[in-house]
């Protein structure tokens, strides 16, 4: 019922649909053809978000849908559907069930890798078709303004140093471990429920260090509440030109969070190419820059299906190693 309504919406935006039904019929009668890119999309696109409304992945999805709409890139709508719960398992197993159907999209969050690694998930990252990455976010190591830590060097040998993370297995945990190794200093990583709680604890002086995304950190820096020490990107950030990268400081720490999209398993190469084109247009548009990249202090990037796929393998390995170090998996 719902499905047919969605189809109708698609029809109303596409007056020549009837014609393509005929083509399809003809095709079915006369020969066996694979779906050609002209026939796509046949209905509204559903973008499955693995977390609730208002979270990072959700905002990415909704902004993406708006930009595609404003730029008039598709004859149909993109509907954002939140399927939170089960640490991402609900959304990703639903997406995996839409085998071969390129009308479904999904976002990649940390749980995309970590929940399957913990076991018990029917699907993992290999089950999905990578499309592209459209932005990335570095991390900024910061302390509160009143802290005695003035530079990364000050952390070396400092007793009882603590760092916060919004979840046990996360990029901040990973980065704290890297920093620990680089400085040969023990850092106690304290897990909280979400980045908001971490920020409260750092601002209140209950934690020393925070690795945060620019969208969380930059406002606090501008208000004089936090002091940035270093960024994890390969180059300095345009928004924080005075803050050095870890590489400049001589530390081998470089890590970013990619904002990428995936399709269900077994999607045809035409459909991958179709989506790659759309995502490239979005990533390179001014609108995407102003509505997403600049607003959330992310950095612009475009990685195609293959590059993003390789990145996914690497990210999975990174988390797997981290989880092994944390004794979460054997």
């Amino acid at each position: 019922m719902l499905q047919s309504q969605l189809n109708n919406q698609g029809l109303s935006k596409q007056p020549f649909r009837r014609f393509s039904y005929l083509t399809f019929l003809a095709g079915a009668i006369f020969s066996c053809t694979t779906a050609s890119a002209q026939d796509f999309p046949e209905q509204d696109i559903t973008y499955i978000v693995q977390s609730g409304v208002g979270g990072g992945s959700d905002i990415l999805a909704r902004t993406f849908a708006n930009v595609v709409d404003e730029l008039d890139l598709l004859p149909v709508n993109i509907l954002v559907e939140n399927r939170a719960g089960g640490a991402g398992a609900i959304a990703y197993s639903f997406l995996a069930q839409q085998k071969g159907n390129a009308h479904y999209l999904g976002g990649v969050g940390v749980s995309f890798f970590t929940t399957p690694l913990l076991g018990n998930s029917a699907v993992d990252y290999r089950d999905f078709t990578p499309v592209a990455a459209v932005a990335y976010s570095p991390y900024i190591l910061s302390v509160r303004t009143e802290s005695d830590i003035m530079s990364v060097e000050d952390i070396r040998g400092r007793p009882d140093t603590t760092a916060g993370t919004g979840a046990v297995v996360s990029d901040p945990t990973l980065l704290s471990r890297m920093l620990e190794r680089e400085l040969d200093t023990q850092i106690r990583v304290v897990p909280f429920d979400g980045e908001g709680e971490v920020l409260s604890a750092v601002l209140g002086g209950h934690l020393d260090l925070v690795f945060g995304n620019p969208s969380e950190i930059i406002e606090q820096i501008q208000a004089g509440n936090l002091r940035p020490l270093a960024v994890t990107a390969s180059e300095r950030l345009a928004s924080l030109p005075d803050v050095p990268t870890f590489t400049e400081l001589g530390h081998d720490i470089e890590h970013i969070q990619l904002r990428g999209l995936v399709l269900p398993p077994d999607v045809s190469s035409e459909h991958i190419a179709f989506w790659e084109d759309i995502l490239r247009t979005v990533a390179e548009s001014d609108l995407w820059r102003s509505e997403y990249v600049d607003r959330f202090n992310d950095e612009p990037i475009f990685l195609d299906s293959q590059a993003f796929g390789e990145q996914m393998v690497e990210t999975n390995e990174t988390y797997e190693t981290l989880m092994r170090e944390l004794d979460l998996i054997d």
């Binding site: 719960g85 089960g86 398992a89 929940t115 913990l118 018990n120 897990p191 979460l328």
Partner: peptide
């Protein structure tokens, strides 16, 4: 610590 607790192997109980 991040490992599942009393979930009886059920992913739906992870959160």
């Amino acid at each position: 610590l991040g490992m599942p607790r009393y979930t009886f192997g059920e992913v739906m109980l992870f959160e």
